[in-house]
Design a protein around this nucleic acid. Structure first.
Lengths: 328, 328
DNA sequence: TTGAAAGCGCTAACAA
DNA sequence: TTGTTAGCGCTTTCAA
């Protein structure tokens, strides 16, 4: 570690007390312009960097926010994190990243580390609820945690129900009369909501949804599932898929079967992932407002850190449909 | 903040000195089994979490590694970061993420923050070289920084030259005799290396590379550039693209022009991004070994933190070609 | 095997 | 406007 100069060094060299140097660093007033100039000069000369660790210890909070996330490699999460990081940096906060790989054990160890680090707050995107034995604010983001308690827990989520509705509605409006929902079992409960939203909308239109289940969230596995379904059932003319990967898998199946998209069958995806816009055909998808979600969660935790109650403990951020070729 | 119990509380309640508690926490020996049992019980009862901040202050390093990265949303970077985080967590290190959005100014501010936080080490993936006025180890990863000094700076990079070669060679081997290189100006110097590698290989084969320049790294813009090129020049029969996005853009252009891929023209991308495997046609691409790169960089910085010189100051990680439909 | 005590670099009363 | 000083929670010598 390194960094010879401390506030004491600076104080001695500039002939003032450490208190004065501290006041200057933090712009707390009660020092003269001349003193400031002299002290600043010394700080520059010595390449002085205030020691945040000492400051944190003294002030009892660290200006660090911990983010617990399943997998930063998933663009949905990295988009959220990017926005949070950018936004919180303006307030002087840094971001500690913890990937859990959906592993409960690892998640707990990460959590313990965050507590030991005395982070100012924790943002949890894993869908797991945590009982923190100390007074660190926690905000859940994106995934509503299992065992979530309304009013007591703090949660920002995307309107997955609405997303499912929008997707199904777009199919119905473009004339589909027989709609399948392509989904896969996953710890991500949001997929369920999307299914539910779609099913609601389909039912409201007087139609009956078909369920096409892939064993995992994976394109090739979705391909198999859809292929299988189309071979053994009357063909749907529209498919709502609970994310873009499944949608691509479905498309690949139809291509294999020689069924034209969007001619015979229309498809919607979810997430508006990077591939949606460049796929061929381009993918109609539900776009989640990562920026709004992030800002909302960040503001919430900022409030809580300041000891104030957030305006609302539960926010649901709207989504929108991006129409592209697969539903043209 | 929060956490009532300190080492002192524990000491008092268990009737030993803080020194003993500290020794127990850190398993430094010099305490009896009975004492340990008693102390541990109290720690459990009080939900005691050792304060890492105080420890860092005292020991003068923080068990935190800062990562400076252009944009975590880019899968290439998030893959690296995921691996680094997983790997370093085993050694007790946490990861502080700083996104620069390729903004030099923001990068500098992030750097200052990291220094103030007294991070144990810095991993820099932005391609910018930093003079750190304090003794914090820096390892450059992925992008060789501008002004890089061999032997003096520490660098782990991917073999982009080799990647360019492999891509071009695969085209040549599948019979292409007229190869275009699709590229775009970017701060990412790796793109240049890929071009160079491809050009070398093409030249060695006695052919002459054509250069097709997109104004930015973007699929639609690449589409325009390629469309334009094909309209005004004799058609190449192979395209090496410096990343997958450009490759997809190129493909879209050819489709528009009614030129079959891989029938008339074969295409290679770079990065083996998530879309490569699921695109239709699937994209032949160069796969970078994120895991090896990350491990190598992490080991390097771990060594440096321990005050030891890494085995080598410069590592170049091999890449491999993933053959898919666009070169079938 | 244990304890006393100094000190890491900083902030914030309190006093001047 | 400035200085003195007591800690924040921990590790680590040194002594017992």
């Amino acid at each position: 570690m390194s960094q010879k100069a401390s506030i004491k060094t600076i104080a001695e060299l500039s002939g003032v007390s450490v208190a004065t140097v501290s006041r200057i660093i933090n712009q707390n007033g009660r020092f003269s312009a001349e003193t400031e100039a002299r002290v600043r000069k010394i700080m520059d000369d010595l390449n002085y960097y205030p020691n945040t660790v000492a400051k944190s210890l003294r002030q009892k909070h660290s200006m660090v926010i911990g983010i617990i996330v399943p997998d930063i490699t998933n663009t949905h999460f990295s988009r959220l994190i990017l926005e949070i990081e950018n936004y919180l940096f303006q307030y002087g906060y840094s971001i500690l990243i913890c990937n859990t790989n959906e592993d409960e054990n690892l998640e707990q160890r990460h959590l313990d580390t965050l507590i030991s680090q005395r982070v100012s707050g924790i943002l949890c995107l894993t869908g797991r609820r945590h009982i923190i034995p100390v007074n660190i604010p926690v905000v859940y983001l994106d995934r509503r945690p299992e065992g979530y308690i309304e009013k007591e827990d703090y949660l920002v989520e995307s309107d997955n129900l609405m997303g499912g509705c929008l997707a199904a509605r777009s199919l119905i409006e473009s004339g589909c009369r027989s709609i399948g929902i392509v989904y896969a079992p996953t710890v991500d409960i949001n997929h369920n909501m999307r299914c539910e939203g779609a099913a609601q909308m389909i039912t409201e239109a007087g139609l009956v949804p078909a369920y096409i289940k892939a064993q995992r969230v994976s394109a090739p596995i979705a391909t198999d599932a859809v292929m299988d379904y189309f071979k053994n059932n009357p063909s749907p003319d529209g498919l709502v898929c609970t994310n873009d990967l499944l949608a691509v898998g479905a498309f690949l199946a139809l291509m294999e079967l020689g069924i034209s998209v969007p001619g015979k069958v229309k498809i919607t995806g979810y997430d508006d992932s990077p591939l949606a816009g460049v796929y061929s055909p381009s993918l109609t998808s539900i776009h989640q407002d990562a920026k709004a979600m992030s800002k909302c969660a960040a503001d919430m935790i900022l409030k809580m850190i300041d000891g104030l109650p957030p305006a609302k403990s539960h926010e649901i951020i709207p989504v929108r449909l991006i129409s592209r070729e697969t539903t043209a």
